[in-house]
C-alpha cells in the first residue's frame, strides 16, 4: 500500500440546509411491544419544495407570438380548402397539409365565456377574470382569450354574441395573453 494514499471521507458532512426536525419522539427501548406500537405512529408529513424552469419552444407556432408582439393577429389556413384556424395550427386536421399564415380581423364576437372567481395558483391573484372563446368572421375555429372592460359581477348570457376588439400588450410577454379583448363599442 502506498504511504501517500488519500484519506477517503468516511462521514457525510452535517449541514444546516433544508428542514431539520429535532428530538423526534421514539421509544427508548425497542422491545417487541415498542416495535409493535410503531404501527400506530402518526405519519411524518413534510413540505418539499419543487421549482423548475422549462425551456419552452413555440416551434412552428412562433410567428404567431412574433405577430402579437407587433400588434398583428395571425391565424392558419389550409391552402386548398381555406379552412381557417383562429388558434394557430401547423397542419390541417382534415387534409394533413401544412397551413399558411393569414391575418385575422381585429374584431370578433364572443362565442362562450366564464368569469373565474377562483383559479389555478398562478392565476389566483388575477381573479375574478373573464375567459372568452372568440369567433372571427371567416375563421372556422375559435380563440381563447381574456375579456377586459366588463363587470365580472354582472355576468350574463347576453355577453355571448358581443362584438369584441383585440388589444395588445405594449410590453410583449410572448404569451397568448399578449392579445386580449375589450367590448368593440367601448
Amino acid at each position: 500500500m502506498s504511504e501517500n494514499k488519500r484519506q477517503l471521507p468516511r462521514k457525510i458532512e452535517e449541514t444546516d440546509a433544508g428542514q431539520i426536525l429535532f428530538n423526534v419522539p421514539f421509544p427508548a427501548e425497542l422491545d417487541a411491544e415498542a416495535l409493535q406500537a410503531l404501527k400506530k405512529m402518526g405519519p411524518i408529513v413534510l413540505k418539499q419544495p419543487y421549482c423548475i424552469d422549462y425551456i419552452h419552444s413555440y416551434g412552428q407556432d412562433s410567428p404567431f407570438f412574433a405577430g402579437l408582439a407587433n400588434g398583428v393577429f395571425l391565424g392558419s389556413r389550409e391552402p386548398d380548402t381555406g379552412y381557417t384556424y383562429a388558434t394557430p395550427r401547423g397542419h390541417d386536421m382534415t387534409t394533413g397539409a401544412e397551413t399558411d399564415w393569414v391575418v385575422l380581423p381585429a374584431e370578433g364576437v364572443i362565442h362562450a365565456f366564464t368569469v373565474c372567481h377562483f383559479g389555478s395558483e398562478e392565476f389566483l391573484p388575477q381573479t375574478p377574470f373573464v375567459l372568452i372563446l372568440v369567433h372571427f368572421e371567416g375563421a372556422d375555429t375559435l380563440f381563447l382569450s381574456r375579456l377586459m372592460g366588463v363587470d365580472p359581477d354582472a355576468a350574463s348570457l347576453d355577453w355571448i354574441g358581443m362584438k369584441v376588439r383585440a388589444r395588445y400588450l405594449r410590453n410583449s410577454k410572448f404569451r397568448p395573453t399578449d392579445v386580449y379583448f375589450v367590448p368593440a363599442e367601448s
Binding site: H56, Y58, D61, T87, P88, A112, F113, T114, C116, F118, G119, S120, E122, F123, Q126, F129, L131, I132, L133, L144, S145, R146, R175, P176, T177
Partner: peptide, 16 residues
C-alpha cells in the same frame, strides 16, 4: 402554449 397561460383552470373551461 395557447390555453394554460390565458388562465388555465378546468372549472373555467367547463363553465365556458
Amino acid at each position: 402554449s395557447f390555453d394554460y397561460p390565458v388562465g388555465g383552470f378546468y372549472s373555467g373551461y367547463y363553465a365556458m
